[in-house]
Amino acid sequence: MKKRAFLDTAYFYGLLVSVISGIAIYRNWGDIKTLDHVNWLDVMAEGSMVVLALFWLILLLRSRPAGRVTHLLALGLCGIIFSWSMDLLDEFIHMPSTLIWHNWLESLPIPIALIFLSIGIYHWHREEIAISAQMVKRERYFREHRFFDKLIPVGGAAYLKKQLKLSLNDSKKQQQPLSLIAIDLDNFNAINRRYGVQEGDHILQLICQLLLLNLRDDDLICRLAGDRFVVLLNNTNEAEATEIAADLQLTVAGFTYRTKQGNKRVSLTASVAITVANADNSDSLIERLNLKLTQIKQQLKHSA
């Protein structure tokens, strides 16, 4: 993933200007407290609130693409930071109690900011639902970004194992069969060497999308390692799994990649292996599946 340039400085300038004008107003109408009148515990607590809110704003702007939701969330956070910093200023500058509107400076921005934030979070929630719909087949039950593959937008081996454990429990409870398919591209090493790793990476990304298209909503695909993918099929017996595996193999065989440089045709084939869960745990199941695949690939080489 490309890191986004730190462009949203407008929010910070706006914030800076409003805080400075806040300070100017306080300086003009208030009296600076002497040091022994300052409550340092309050200063520390309120100061750290401001710093933390700034930290949230930075994270938000760095991680999210620009758009309505980001804008609303950022505005809300700016309001909160402003109001909390006015609170902090209050510790150093005493305002005469005859002034009513200085209280507004402290209290008014908070509700407005919270309204912005709430609208933002509501739309964020809608957005998450939309994104989750697209993530079906890649994640189930829980999301854990640490297990996601860096190159290809599906889970890695660790994610597969966690999911497999859950599914094994379910299948035992519901007395339903559970199958796994392993798909491994043939001679992928040679493609990497001939066309370069960039093209190889791109092929893997495309193959992954292609496999996703051929799966049911309830299936889960993960990238085990390198050019090997594993599909987890709930409520699927061996015959159905064999059929799906054959379809996936056909899909890969029907796909032709054209290299970015030189526009060369690259056709691919894949080897597949299937296994059905018996009384084993997730580790031994994955190991059995891979052994089977290794044997299949070995035979392929001998017959070729």
Binding site: A157, A158, D184, A225, G226, N290, T294
Partner: peptide, 13 residues
Amino acid sequence: PDYIEQYWVNLGQ
């Protein structure tokens, strides 16, 4: 190692 899958794919089983 706990990433044994990498060994399988790259070095064999």
